[in-house]
Amino acid sequence: MPAAAPAPPGLPVIDYAAAPAGFPADPHPGDTRPLTQGLAPTRKIPVYDAPGGRPLAFLAPTISDVPLTVPIAQRRTGWTAVLLPSANRRLAWVPPTGGWTTVALPDQIVVERRPHRLTWFHSGRAVRSWPVSLGMPGQETPLGRTFVLGRTPPPEEVYGGVDIFALGAVPDDPDAVPTGLKGAHIGLHSWHDDDTLGRNVTNGCIRLTRGAQRLLLDRVPPGTGLLVVDQLHTPPATA
C-alpha cells in the first residue's frame, strides 16, 4: 500500500470556489454505472493526486456550512478516489488514514442533452423521467459525472419558490457566464414557468418542473451522483 506523504498545513481547503489545479482527470467521466457509496469527512482530511502521490488540498466536513458527501468513484491499493467538488471531471485520492465514513447512495440522476431528459434512478431502477432545459450554445451543461453538493434557498422569484440543488460541477467556460453568476456552480432547479422545457436556454444549469424538483429534494440525498451524457444508448423504462 503506497504511504501517504505528510500534508503541509498551508494547503488550501476545497470550498465553493474553483478547486486547485493538479488533480487527475476522471478516467471514466461518462460511465453510466451508479456510484453507490459516498465518503463523508469527519475532520479536515488531505487529498492527493494519486495513491502515494502529492497532497494538493484538504477536504473539510462542510462546504459553505453544508455537510459534504462525495461519491466514491474508484479504489486502488487501499486508497479511495472521489469525485472532486468545485471541479469538472476530476478525481481526488484519499489515503486510508481515517477521518471519514462511508454513506450509502441508492440514487442516481442521469441527464441526456439531446432528448433534454432527466431520469431519476433508485437502486438501479428508473423511477421517473422529466423534460429539462439545458445550457445554451457556449454555456453548455457540462458533460460527465458530478454529484449533488447540497441545497440552497432560491435567491430570486424566477426559481419558482423551490430550493436549488447546487452540483459539484462548475461552468466549463467560466468567462462565458454572465457577471451576476460568476463563481456559481451548475445547479439543478425549477423555474417560474415551464415554457422553455426541452430547449437550450440556461447558463449551464439543469431546469425542470417545480413538482419534479420538489420530489427530488424530498427523496435524493446530498452526495448522489449526477451524470450528464449526450444520450443513453437504451432509453430508460420507468417503473
Score class of each variant (00 low, 15 high):
191 W>R: 14
1 M>A: 09
7 A>C: 14
71 P>A: 01
7 A>R: 15
146 T>G: 00
102 T>A: 09
147 F>S: 00
43 R>Y: 06
140 E>M: 04
13 V>C: 05
141 T>C: 08
162 V>T: 13
8 P>I: 15
24 P>V: 00
102 T>V: 02
145 R>I: 01
158 V>G: 12
53 G>M: 05
146 T>V: 00
25 A>T: 07
136 M>C: 11
7 A>M: 14
14 I>Q: 11
129 S>D: 00
189 H>Y: 06
114 R>G: 00
70 V>Q: 00
3 A>F: 11
180 G>E: 14
203 N>K: 05
158 V>W: 15
156 E>D: 15
234 T>S: 00
162 V>R: 12
177 V>A: 15
223 G>A: 09
141 T>M: 05
186 I>M: 03
68 L>A: 04
197 L>M: 07
40 A>G: 10
21 A>Y: 04
40 A>S: 15
216 L>I: 03
115 P>G: 04
31 D>K: 08
28 H>A: 13
115 P>F: 04
135 G>E: 07
131 P>K: 09
177 V>P: 10
208 L>G: 02
194 D>C: 00
123 S>F: 14
120 W>N: 00
83 L>R: 01
47 V>N: 11
132 V>T: 05
169 A>K: 03
111 V>M: 03
89 R>D: 06
77 T>W: 12
69 T>N: 04
80 T>R: 12
173 D>F: 15
188 L>P: 01
174 P>I: 12
198 G>K: 06
96 P>D: 04
81 A>Y: 01
117 R>G: 05
152 T>R: 15
64 S>L: 10
54 R>Y: 07
114 R>T: 05
113 R>G: 02
180 G>N: 11
86 S>C: 02
89 R>E: 03
77 T>H: 13
